[in-house]
Amino acid sequence: MDFPAMQAFRYAKSQVVLHWVAALVIAVMLLSGTFILSNLPNTPDKVGMLRIHMMMGMLVAVLILTRVVMGRMLPAPPVTVDQKKAHLVHIVLNLAVLLMAASGSVLALQSGLFDVVFGSGALPEDFKVFSARQVHGWVAKGVMALVALHVASALYHQFVLKDGVLARMTFRK
């Protein structure tokens, strides 16, 4: 399909907004979790950041579930063979992000974190002793790899194949 023809098959504006909001929040979560939270000692100063991280994690789960439901309800643009592969990557990426939210919730339950950040109590000495923390960390690395693959593929389509796939997820005319 050439660029003008591909451009005619866009996602709904609501899907575009959800995609970019979810992408932004996921990027912030991955960066803050990897480079800030994991390096901070478990002192009372960390509680506020953990509270924000947990609330944003819940937001990400809601955004992803909304995107999945919306994707089922709204007509999807026609797909090529490459886009079928991209669809598989999207499914795996969505599942991985939901696993991040689930493992974060399990970690919060295992460690008593809900009580600490939304009530009172002390942080555990180290989160790494909890199995859910190990899952959370490994899945985060997988999500980063999938996001990198997703971005690289979009850029490849945009600048090498010049097939207009990226335009389907924008508001450009």
Rank of each mutant, 00 (worst) to 15 (best):
V81C: 02
H19Q: 08
L59Y: 03
V47Y: 05
L109P: 00
L95D: 05
A23M: 12
L88H: 05
A145E: 04
H87C: 01
A154L: 11
A22G: 11
Q83G: 03
V92C: 07
G142I: 03
P41H: 15
W138I: 12
V165L: 06
A12M: 06
N42M: 14
F118R: 07
L40C: 10
A167C: 03
Y156W: 15
Q110I: 00
S131M: 14
S111E: 00
I52C: 07
V165T: 08
V89H: 01
V116G: 11
G48S: 15
M1W: 05
M29F: 04
V117K: 01
P41R: 15
A96P: 07
A102Q: 01
R67N: 03
L88E: 02
V62F: 10
I26E: 08
P77H: 03
F9G: 01
K141D: 05
K141G: 15
K13N: 10
N42K: 15
S111D: 01
A154D: 05
K13W: 05
G71P: 01
V147Q: 07
G119P: 13
P77F: 05
K84G: 00
M70P: 00
F3A: 07
A140V: 04
L95V: 15
M54I: 11
V139S: 06
M1I: 03
M100R: 07
L166A: 11
L18R: 07
M73L: 11
A145T: 08
S111K: 01
K85P: 00
M29R: 09
L123Q: 13
I64Y: 00
S120D: 14
V62N: 03
N39C: 04
G164H: 05
A154T: 12
R10P: 01
L146V: 02
R133E: 12
A132G: 06
R172N: 12
V68I: 15
Y11H: 08
K85M: 06
L37F: 11
L113S: 02
T80Y: 03
V117A: 02
H157T: 04
T34R: 01
K173A: 01
F118W: 11
V97L: 13
Y11D: 03
F35H: 09
A5W: 02
L37V: 12
F118H: 06
A132R: 01
S111I: 00
A27C: 10
M55P: 02
V68S: 04
M54R: 09
M6E: 07
A148Q: 07
S103Y: 02
L88Q: 06
L31N: 04
